[in-house]
């Protein structure tokens, strides 16, 4: 996967990604959006963010042991609490990382 083959792969990935990004922004005048889709767009940010966030903190299944999971859970809970109270990203980053490091240190 090096040389010309590597560049081909990178260009193909780029083309796919750009087509998806450009779809509505570039072609919007030529696409008719059904009413249901338009209503659904109001829920895109919360839904997509939830789908990205939750599995990063909570992982069920075979590879989920408490020692590796606990620091993430703690950091997630503390981070969420700080986020609700302050809505301040820097505060969440500081509180979350400190919690992660603290619990990691406690669990050795």
């Amino acid at each position: 996967m090096t040389g010309a083959g590597g560049w081909g792969l990178i260009l193909a990935m780029a083309a796919i990604t750009f087509a998806l990004r450009a779809s509505f922004i570039v072609l919007q005048d030529r696409i008719r959006v059904p009413a249901l889709v338009r209503r659904g767009l109001a829920y895109v940010p919360a839904a997509v963010l939830g789908a990205i966030v939750a599995p990063a903190f909570v992982q069920l299944g075979g590879d989920a042991d408490v020692v590796t999971q606990a620091p993430r859970w703690a950091a997630g809970l503390v981070g969420a609490a700080v986020a609700v109270r302050t809505q301040n990203m820097v505060a969440v980053l500081v509180a979350g990382m400190l919690t992660l490091w603290g619990v990691q240190a406690l669990l050795g």
């Binding site: 829920y43 919360a46 939830g50 969440v92």
Partner: peptide, 25 residues
């Protein structure tokens, strides 16, 4: 781990400022 923390903040803010259906979503 800073990346999921950023998304966590944005998620919480979207829900706190949103309507009930946004919260459900």
């Amino acid at each position: 781990f800073a990346v999921p923390l950023v998304f966590l903040t944005l998620w919480v803010v979207a829900m706190v400022r949103g309507t009930a259906p946004v919260w459900v979503a």
